[in-house]
Design a binder for these strands. Structure first.
Lengths: 339, 339
DNA sequence: GTATACTGTGAATACGTATTCTCCGGCTGG
DNA sequence: CCAGCCGGAGAATACGTATTCACAGTATAC
């Protein structure tokens, strides 16, 4: 039922090889023959079978995005949405498609990556949620599998693109101190996640610089988890006057918590988070947030990855860091918006 | 470099066919031979090549999710995030993986679907964002391509699963009237999108029942678009006392707009939206929202789709409607939360 | 004029797997 | 004891494409 190159060949009275050559474009074919073939293709609405092509060319035309399940992002974190969105945009003009690969957490993950690698389901991989001692990297690198890490490689010599998270942590924290807040806390993500660790690093530097005491709470991703942590943090006797929160979505949790406790933002609690998403507008006074250049992040990562999958020659690993800046809104200005 | 069945066969001193049979599991193989093969597989860390398997079995093991770009969802709409998330969960225990297929808007989309269909890149398709006269359905059905629509098929005889959006529109609207609001408006999505049209339908029924005048505004998806529309709607001389908004994310836009205009929720403006996402907690008084059973929606859709891709026999199209209910919070209670 | 290079095409092959076809040996039933 | 069967294994084939190999025909050079 399905129309193949063989059918086209028969119809145009040429060999199957010639049809393939016409499709390839670069092969030398007499203009009139090419024309005849093209007409036959047009007429029969032929499209090459992607599966056969995959086997022959040894590439699937798929880029995988590895997402940890079930406790990874993607549950409501706008960061992942924009990540996927940007990847789709970036792939638009290429031959590649996006495949979301779920990977379990914990030690099982290696088996999953190994399977991904051996079955050759995808041509390349975008890794996110890098952790402190990320063994995935070695596993993939050992097999020369093309991949790019969005995150901090922590010393591994791999291709990676990352926001300047240490700097991001610094400017967020510094801004709060400069606004007059003194006891500044940090609601971070789980231990080991580099995004979190790097921002804590930046935060800690500034806290030390102002000769204050660092206060860090770890929380799962998501609004509700952050709310619960914030409830504890803010109701303790040593509650902070300001909070840096790992992302806008979690910051919403802090907002909810502070409301439950009758704590006003920004009068009683200064707030700065990261991502600068639309959610920042929801807060009455506006939520100050570090703006990350996700489009640029993704564009860089993709062009790197496509370069890796494309050429078989060895490409020297490189770490790219994308700059970011603070967008100040009302939540971090004690007087209520004077700037 | 790559280890194939041939290699395993050589190592275990059997034929390639036997290796394949062992992998299939159901084939009859002597226990000791099977054992020998399994050991060889284990030892060489063999995994079948998914590309070759695809060609041979004529199936890729991929489920596609068709998303409209660039103006489709996925930009910040939490609905899509949970949709993808649920699909990933549902696919977890199957052989299938998820592939996001972007489709352009407008007339070009047919070419895209046609290509998707002919290249057989995916085994089945999940369609969303159904529109009033959805020609995609016929196109796919004509080729007997397995797909399931998440949305209203509008008379087409196809497999579909949908929230009961008419009912959803009714209960949201009715609740506002019963709370004492009289002039109730509706901020909908773009024309033709069935989610939007169905909810308008339900809304209109109730409005008529209460002998009031329907007021409908159309908006693009997203917080900012909804905010701008709401600014217009609420600043007109005939501004509504209450609003039904197409989803929580857009409702946040209405919240921003009303704040800009000094309109208080729920005193001056009642608000009900749809999805019942975490965002509802962000609003100080809590945002009333129609809770949709997305897990059930997706589960039903997937089991249907997998059934379609699995068996080649004809399965009679069926329309499934998933019930929903209203979760009342403060934004729709004029007295401020007495309930 | 023949020898050589070149160009475009068809024939043949390989990619790695699943499955059908073939065949061999042992079993059953008379 | 032999005909017929059956279970299990290898050989062969097909899936649809890209590419190499072989070859005829033409053009170029001396």
């Amino acid at each position: 039922m399905r129309v193949t190159q063989q059918d086209i060949a028969r119809f145009a009275q040429v060999s199957q090889a010639t049809v393939s050559r016409v499709l390839a474009g670069d092969g030398r074919v007499e203009p009139d023959i090419r024309q005849k073939v093209l007409e036959a293709i047009e007429q029969h609405n032929y499209q090459p079978d992607v599966r056969a092509r995959s086997l022959r060319t040894q590439s699937t035309g798929l880029i995988g995005l590895a997402v940890k399940r079930p406790h990874g992002g993607l549950d409501g974190d706008p960061f992942y949405t924009s990540l996927i969105s940007e990847i789709l945009d970036g792939l638009e003009d290429t031959e590649y498609h996006l495949c979301i690969e779920t990977v379990p957490e914990g030690p099982d993950q290696f088996e999953a990556y190994d399977e991904l690698l051996r079955t050759r389901r995808v041509d390349g991989l975008v890794l996110v949620e890098s952790e402190a001692d990320d063994e995935r990297l070695e596993l993939l690198q050992r097999d020369r599998f093309p991949f790019v890490l969005i995150g901090n490689p922590m010393g591994h010599r791999v291709w990676s693109v990352d926001n300047d998270n240490v700097y991001a942590g610094q400017i967020a924290t510094q801004h709060l101190f400069e606004s007059g807040y003194r006891k500044v806390g940090f609601i971070a993500g789980r231990h080991g996640v580099t995004v979190s660790e790097d921002r804590i690093e930046g935060y800690t530097r500034i806290v030390n610089q102002f000769e204050s005491e660092p206060m860090v709470w770890h929380s799962d991703f998501g609004l509700e988890a952050a709310r619960d942590v914030a409830l504890l943090a803010l109701s303790g006797k040593d509650a902070p006057e300001a909070m840096v929160v790992l992302d806008d979505y979690m910051a919403m949790g802090v907002v909810v918590a502070s409301r439950m406790l009758g704590i006003r933002i920004p009068q009683d609690l200064g707030l700065v988070s990261f991502n600068d998403s639309n959610l920042c507008l929801v807060l009455e006074c506006g939520l100050s947030s570090v703006s990350l250049d996700i489009p640029r992040l993704v564009r860089t990562a993709l062009s790197t990855l496509l370069h890796l999958t494309g050429s078989k020659e060895l490409v020297e690993p490189k770490r790219v860091v994308v700059p970011c800046f603070l967008r100040v809104r009302g939540s971090s200005i004690r007087t209520g918006g004077l700037l």
